[in-house]
Amino acid sequence: MTMVTTAATGISIWLTTTVSAFVLAVLAALPQIVDPYQTVLLTYGLIMAIAALGFNLLLGYTGLLSFGHSAYFGAGAYAVAFIMRDLGAHSMELCIVGGMLGTLIIAAIFGFVCVRHTRIFFGILTLALSQVLWSLAFKFFWVTGGTDGIRVPYASLTLLGGLVDFKGPGSFQRFIYAYYYYVLVLFAASTILMWVIAHSPFGKALQAIRDNETRARFVGISVRRYRWIAFMVSGTFTGLAGILWVPLNGLTTPDILYWPFSGEIVFMTVLGGFRSFTGPIVGAMAFNYLKTYAIASTEYWQLLLGVVLVILVMALPAGIVGTAARLAAKLGRWTK
């Protein structure tokens, strides 16, 4: 029995690796084929995928629905803005390290408070705390620029410790391509790291807590500490997404701290399917295209997104990946 399981796991790991390598190769080749606008869209999609991946460590693996993940996305974005404006730094790597440290601290404080509760109270608590950050960003305009936000110009940014800079003519084109690959590498690294976390003993413990808290406690798992660590990891991943998002957007405003943005992160994760590892990635990419084209085609894009969300919840609660897996399984049985 053990041997069979190991063999099966061996095959599935091999399969996963092959498929992932293929997807990564396609993603790497895409900017050569599609126009720059699509490249920018893809970059946004990959960034949101990192955010959703982080978020799903809490929802999918720990069973905690956070309605305040805008806080960590926004903390990362504002940290970059502060580092570049106030410390005069230009290195993206420095921004990433500083931003992730900042997000980690905030996630540690907020998480320490939030993990004392579960279910609906956890959701409301994360929401309330995220709105503390929003109101501070909104009101302290002499520090944060208020609703005008802070500009983060790509031109003053350097990648890879100063090796790549964006000065001179044609710099925007160069930035788009260079930044796409930069984000792609970080996306791949984040995905691998998250996969390792989700499949580590720590990840398994989280799933045990999700499925039965009392039993997990009996087995000797320190439930609250595990939830806290998961919260910090989750927040920091989403923070990385905010860090990567801000140079591409060129501006950070309190909107990304406001609670409807947290709702969007939840939305994309459920769209992909929060019961699978790849769900949030697929969901974030799909949501990104859905939102972009909805905004481009109609003034009433929120209505469209709302209808999609309601249909999703009513008819396809397993999301894109879950539904596809079920269809594939059905097809497999049918062909046999």
Partner: peptide, 12 residues
């Protein structure tokens, strides 16, 4: 989620 969807719909 469903009430969040409803919120988006009602806003528009």
């Amino acid at each position: 989620l469903v009430t969040f969807g409803l919120l988006l719909i009602l806003e528009d």
